[in-house]
Computed example of a mutant assay.
Amino acid sequence: MDAVGRTTTQTMHAVAAEPLHQGFFTHAQVAPDDIAVIGPTVRWTYGQLRDQALSVSGALAVAGVRVGDRVAVVGPTGLDTVIATLAILAAGGVCVPIDTVEPAEPVLEHAGVRMALFTGDGPPNWLPALTVSEALRIGARTCDVTPVRSAPADPAFLGSIDETGYAVVTHAAAHDAVMELSVRLGVTGDDRIGAFAATGAAAPILMMLMALTAGAAVVVADDAPRRNLERGMNGFALAVRHRDAVAALDTAMPS
C-alpha cells in the first residue's frame, strides 16, 4: 500500500469513531449556507436542516425518549424522513425505518419501538407517536438542544425488519459503510444524491447520511413512486445525478 493509500485508510478509521450523524452536524456548523435538501417546493440549507432536526430531537426528549430507545419513522419518504432520521440519531435513539407498503403496527410491536414519528400529512395510527410537523411545533419551545455523541458500539438503526427478526447496525458499522460508499461513488459537496432511490430499510439511511456527511445535497421526492412506479421513478431520475448506487450498496452494506 502506498503512502496515499495508508493515509486514506488511517483517515477513514479515525473518522469512523464519530457518530453516524456527526458529519452532518459538523458540516452544518462550518458551512451552514450550503444547500442540504432539494425538493419540489423547498431548498433548505445545512443550517436550516440542523435547526429543524434539533427541534424534533428536543420534542423526542420532551416525549420521554432516552438514549438507546428505538424510534420508528413511518410514512411516505421525503423531507420529513430526513428531519426525523437526523433527529432520532441526534437524540441518541435508534432509528427504525418502516416500509409503509406493509401494515406498520405488527412491525412496531415486534421491533420494541418506544415511539414513532409519522411523516407526511396523515395522522398517526399507532401510539405513542407524533407527526414530524407536531414534533417541530413542540421542539420550537425547547432550547439548548445538542446532538448526543454516541459511542461507536452504540446502535444507530435497525438494518432490516421482517418476520424472522432484524439486524442492529452500530454507529461504527454504519459510518464505515457511509465512508465506503462515499469513496466508491466519488461523492463531493457539488453532488445531488437521490437518497430514496434504493430499496431496503438500510439503503435510504446510508445514502442520505453519505450525502450529508460529504456536504452534498439530498434530493427528495413525494410518494409518487409507490403509487405509479414507472412514472414516479422516471420523474425522480430527472432530478438526481445518476449513480450506480445499488451496486455500491451491495458491497458496502454493514452486516
Rank of each mutant, 00 (worst) to 15 (best):
E109Y: 02
R227T: 10
A174S: 11
P106D: 09
A91I: 09
P76F: 01
V15P: 06
G139M: 13
M1P: 14
P155E: 15
A116D: 03
M210H: 04
V74T: 05
H110D: 08
P225R: 07
S150R: 12
L49T: 10
D121G: 12
R114E: 12
A91K: 13
F157S: 00
G112I: 07
A221C: 10
P106K: 09
V240L: 10
G232C: 11
F236S: 00
V113E: 15
L130R: 13
P225Q: 12
Q10N: 13
G194T: 08
V178W: 01
V107K: 15
P106V: 04
E18N: 14
E18I: 04
D191K: 02
A203D: 00
I193M: 10
T188H: 05
D33L: 06
A90T: 03
V67M: 13
C95R: 04
A3G: 13
A203K: 00
A31T: 12
T199F: 07
L158P: 03
T85I: 02
A214T: 09
L20G: 01
V73A: 02
A197E: 00
D33V: 03
A167C: 03
A53G: 11
L130G: 01
H175K: 13
V4A: 15
F24Q: 05
P128M: 08
V30T: 12
G235C: 12
G23E: 10
